[in-house]
Computed example of a mutant assay.
Amino acid sequence: MQTVKNSQRGFTLIELMITVAIVGILAAIAYPSYTNYVLRGYRSEGIALLSDAAARMERFYAQNNTYVGATLATIGITNANSANNKYTLQLASAATATAYTLQVVPQGSQVKDTTCGTMSLDQAGNKLPTTAECWR
């Protein structure tokens, strides 16, 4: 009488648990990096919105020799939200004859961007926050 040896194939529970642990560690490292990357990517929307509004303000000044009377409507901005609604454009205060300050306020999921938060730009090109990371 011959005995037939059955060979079993598959993974042991230990092998599966090790794999799950490795995937968990990789995810714990990768997810925060990915989140920061997404926030930084949307930050460019706010910068573009500020730059466009600043160019329109300068055009208004060139035509009127003053910033007085410049509002988002008078400079031709009908929608103060960025393309993906991540930022809203505002005049930080009423424009004077020689000065203005524009700001973009984060909306929705972009409020998690605590590195930069609300960004502003004035007529002299001064940027807040001053961190270079916020403006690249």
Results as ranks from 00 to 15, higher is better:
residue 64 N to A: 01
residue 25 I to Y: 11
residue 43 R to N: 12
residue 68 V to S: 09
residue 24 G to S: 07
residue 5 K to D: 04
residue 47 I to Y: 01
residue 72 L to E: 02
residue 8 Q to F: 14
residue 52 D to E: 15
residue 68 V to A: 09
residue 73 A to K: 15
residue 36 N to K: 15
residue 28 A to H: 12
residue 35 T to C: 02
residue 35 T to H: 11
residue 45 E to S: 08
residue 19 T to D: 02
residue 56 R to C: 09
residue 29 I to Q: 03
residue 48 A to P: 00
residue 60 F to W: 09
residue 68 V to Y: 07
residue 24 G to F: 08
residue 6 N to T: 13
residue 47 I to E: 01
residue 23 V to E: 00
residue 60 F to Q: 05
residue 68 V to I: 07
residue 67 Y to F: 13
residue 29 I to Y: 08
residue 50 L to W: 07
residue 40 R to E: 14
residue 21 A to P: 03
residue 21 A to F: 11
residue 44 S to A: 08
residue 5 K to C: 03
residue 38 V to N: 11
residue 16 L to S: 07
residue 29 I to G: 04
residue 68 V to M: 12
residue 57 M to Q: 01
residue 41 G to M: 12
residue 67 Y to A: 03
residue 28 A to S: 14
residue 33 S to R: 14
residue 63 Q to F: 08
residue 53 A to I: 01
residue 43 R to H: 11
residue 34 Y to R: 02
residue 39 L to D: 06
residue 18 I to Q: 08
residue 18 I to V: 13
residue 53 A to T: 01
residue 9 R to V: 12
residue 46 G to T: 01
residue 9 R to Q: 15
residue 59 R to G: 15
residue 17 M to C: 03
residue 73 A to D: 10
residue 43 R to D: 02
residue 12 T to V: 05
residue 32 P to M: 08
residue 44 S to T: 07
residue 58 E to T: 00
residue 33 S to Y: 09
residue 74 T to M: 09
residue 33 S to Q: 08
residue 23 V to R: 01
residue 31 Y to V: 14
residue 63 Q to W: 04
residue 44 S to L: 02
residue 51 S to K: 05
residue 29 I to F: 12
residue 71 T to W: 02
residue 54 A to F: 03
residue 30 A to I: 12
